[in-house]
């Protein structure tokens, strides 16, 4: 059964066009909430909306470039050293991104700190290189990289925004990144109810756990809905079949009679 399903999926993927590749990674196969990839940065750098956004940008950059390069060199690399070659490619891009961040967004570099070099061990990037870019052409790989990383960024921003809002009662931006909106604040005036624990480590775990549960609840709800619909459909078909059978029986009975 399982084999049949994957085979079916694989067949369908053949004629996936670029748009589908792009949107797939954002919601349906969101790398963080659905596939649970890249937990460490998701916990550590999401104490505010903007750090989540910044980290997301870096991941977009690294993932897209590494996907492109991996896809370009996929035919030149012997099977045996495929994985180490990917690691080198990723580590190179991470180093480059680290240097660029330090030069152009020093505040972001400071606040992400150790988690910039740690992008290198972010499972998400390796997974995409190994499972997608090594099998598809450059354009598709680039699109996939952007899509998946965008999904990751949105997830980080969702977590970061939640944590920042709960902790400070406001959302600030323009603090870490050279955005034109420097120093703007969306203040909900809830400063009375701020819960500092949410910018802390404990809050990170709890907020991610909460969002995971929400997404899972949605998934379960959808599943149940689908199952109910299918059950109804089966029921209907069964009824129709029974009806047909009855009619046939009646007809044959009538014919013989």
């Amino acid at each position: 059964m399982a084999q049949k399903q994957t085979a079916k999926k694989g067949k369908r993927k053949k004629d996936l066009h670029a748009l589908a590749v792009f949107t797939r990674g954002i919601i349906r196969e969101n790398s963080l909430f659905v596939l649970l990839l890249g937990m460490c940065p998701a916990l550590a750098v999401t104490s505010s909306l903007e750090t989540g956004f910044g980290m997301g940008l870096l991941v977009i950059f690294v993932l897209t470039l590494s996907n492109i390069v991996v896809s370009l060199i996929r035919k030149a690399i012997p099977e045996e050293i495929r994985i180490p070659a990917y690691i080198v490619v990723i580590a190179t891009f991470v180093t480059i991104v680290g240097l660029l961040t330090e030069a152009f967004a020093p505040a972001l570099h400071e606040s992400l700190g150790i988690f910039i070099p740690l992008i290198v061990v972010n499972c998400l990037i390796m997974e995409r290189a190994n499972n997608f870019a090594s099998k598809n052409n450059v354009v598709l790989s680039a699109i996939d990289g952007i899509g998946v990383a965008l999904g990751f960024m949105l997830a980080l921003m969702l977590i970061g925004g939640t944590r920042e809002f709960l902790a400070t009662g406001a959302l600030a931006y323009g603090v870490y990144l050279p955005l034109p909106l420097e120093g703007s604040i969306i203040n909900a005036g809830l400063t009375l109810f701020q819960m500092e624990v949410f910018v802390g480590p404990a809050g990170g775990f709890i907020v991610i756990g909460f969002w995971l549960a929400v997404f899972k609840a949605f998934e379960l709800y959808n599943k149940r809905k689908k199952k109910e619909a299918r059950d109804r459909w089966i029921e209907k078909k069964k009824k129709e079949a029974a009806e047909r059978k009855r009619r046939k029986a009646m007809e044959s009975a009538g014919g013989s009679a």
Partner: peptide
Amino acid sequence: SGLGIVAVNSFTEDII
């Protein structure tokens, strides 16, 4: 990879 890193470094060094 070495060349890439060196190139980016020489570009960003002064800015950093």
